[in-house]
Design a protein around this nucleic acid. Structure first.
Lengths: 342, 342
DNA sequence: TCGGTTGTGGGTAACGTTTTACACTGAACG
DNA sequence: CGTTCAGTGTAAAACGTTACCCACAACCGA
């Protein structure tokens, strides 16, 4: 508790104050082998009295900074805070601190920020639905322990945590089909990159939609835009312009569903009277009274918790075989979906 | 571009490769005085060829890490990303990198995270609507350059960026009064701490509400809950239970307004037919079609930009007199407010 | 008594960067 | 022909921490 400005109190100050060596202090800090209870007590007290906190930057120079970096693709997407909470809760009782990168909207941004994190000596990285091409992810993971969240596909160098998007899409399709809908459209996020096409959640959801529709013997109606509100708005307009309109729309993300709802409101259509709408992610605002959006819940908290746990394990042992965790989504029915209009 | 694992390439490697001293490399990196064009060229090329990036942790030990920490009180509040964008845009062309603390919901969390940031050698901190008591903020600002956003009140040690919450509240009150409303209730975030009572935006908004109501000769009707969706829900229930119901509700934040809308929907009341509702912050979802919430826009992007600018100035000169920037809010009228019902 | 072990503690060399101080050149100046 | 001076470069000492290695004492079993 230094009051005011002045130099930082260092391990040397503590050592002098406790009348031991800096080595001793360091050992106590890391509760390493070779410290007697009496010495520990002395050092603890000195630390207390001086209000000493180790300087992470200096520690970094020797290997560990006790910092974990989290990369969010889009801080505006209300699904990510759930993941973050899971990460935080798991890390709460460890010495690790979490720091977030500012949201990055491009591959280039992402590379810049991950590099910045590595340069700052972070002990491990959690990448949430990263855009980086596969080979770069692999290379990254060779440099620093990493866990990739939300992106399907196996790697030997990083662990992954995903939610079963195939099943999730099926949940929605079956729910709508059970309500009697035959013409169910899907608005997806356009994907061109070939590896991303098989790995990104959006692409997998679209594939799940296709499979479920085929299983049900229904005709596929796919619109490609983006996972944004605007994407939903434009997608809905496209659908409304069709000679043969769908009776239900499955938006690939809640934020997309919001755009759809906006477009329907403008067109004077009622939901679910004229058209059913479903989203994906069960974000906080899906539950809001005036919206009350049917959606798929991904258990973000658990996703984050698993990611943190895997990362800690990998930091402890970089050679351990890579693990894939796959969680199951659940359907949350609310008021935007209803029986087929007559 | 090292392919694969292997040691980091350091300034020593660059020096050896360019056949100069490490000092020379360092000078080029920081474009310091005392480098000939020919040497610069040699060094640049070596850096290029080896794919060298300075190790921020090591730099930290010598003073600067080129890292700026941002503390968000609540990552779920959709207003903060706007501020963040402003910060990012201002810092884009500098050598600084932004890192965010995970959202913190208590004073203790906040202290932990700011300490963690200081321990990691951050060059400056931007604190967004921090909860920390004034003396701790002052002490913090003596340790590290800091800018406080959203919190009113002057300090000699840190700069501040605020939006004029008094005026903002008046915008709403006047808008509603102009529509004919006489009984306008306000849902505020309960505040007990005395310094926070004068400094926190929520408290100032409540004060602005009081002033504007008095000016208009209207009676004050204040409900104290929290700035959360639940707070809005509970506040609305309280208001609905009154014998003499208000005809308009001014919620202190958009998220609160969402709770209000939920409660009204449940009670079978129409908006704005039966009751007008207004929020504050003009968050992204206020604009969403099905919600279309009247709100006050705070120009978050500009707020962030100013904060970053001030911080850079303070990092450059820690002794400079502290600056207070105050921005003006604007009213955004949407569909949740309307004329007094008959 | 001896060698070996175990429990404690410290000395010191890194880690990668910046910064201070200084050495060496020529050239310009009187 | 000394003296100053700007320009160009380097050596070496920090910065705060950890990890390796060694020293010392006490105890053990043979």
């Amino acid at each position: 508790m230094d009051s005011g400005t002045g130099r930082r109190v260092t391990i040397v100050d503590v050592a002098r104050h406790a009348k031991v060596s800096t080595t001793a202090v360091s050992k106590v800090l890391r509760n390493a082998y070779g410290t007697s209870p009496s010495m520990r007590a002395k050092v603890q007290q000195a630390i207390e009295e001086l209000g000493y906190r180790p300087y992470a930057a200096a520690r970094g120079l020797r290997g560990k900074t006790y910092t974990i970096g989290v990369l969010l693709p889009d801080i505006r997407n209300p699904f990510f805070p759930d993941i973050l909470d899971g990460i935080k809760d798991t890390l709460r009782d460890t010495d690790y601190q979490v720091l977030l990168g500012p949201s990055c909207d491009s591959e280039k941004d992402e590379a810049t920020i991950t590099n910045a994190m590595i340069d700052r000596g972070m002990d491990g990285l959690i990448l949430i639905a990263p855009l980086l091409p596969r080979p770069l992810l692999e290379r990254l993971a060779k440099t620093v322990p990493a866990v990739v969240v939300g992106r399907h596909g196996h790697s030997d160098h990083y662990d992954t945590v995903t939610d079963d998007d195939i099943t999730g899409a099926a949940l929605i399709v079956n729910h709508l089909a059970d309500l009697g809908h035959r013409h169910i459209a899907h608005i997806e996020h356009r994907e061109t990159d070939p590896t991303r096409l098989s790995e990104m959640p959006n692409a997998v959801r679209a594939e799940g939609y296709r499979q479920a529709m085929r299983t049900r013997g229904l005709e596929i109606d796919l619109v490609s835009t983006t996972y944004t509100q605007e994407g939903g708005y434009l997608g809905a307009q496209q659908l409304l312009a069709r000679p043969h309109r769908p009776t239900a729309v499955f938006a690939g993300a809640d934020i997309v569903a919001m755009g759809v709802l906006t477009a329907l409101t403008e067109a004077g259509l009622s939901v679910p009277g004229d058209m059913s709408v479903a989203g994906y992610d069960n974000t906080t605002f899906a539950a809001l009274g005036p919206i009350s959006l049917t959606s798929v819940d991904q258990a973000g908290h658990e996703i984050g918790g698993n990611a943190a746990r895997l990362l800690l394990a990998r930091i402890a042992d970089r050679k351990r075989p890579s693990t894939q965790v796959k969680l199951s989504p659940t359907l949350v029915v609310r008021r935007t979906t209803g029986p087929l209009p007559l």
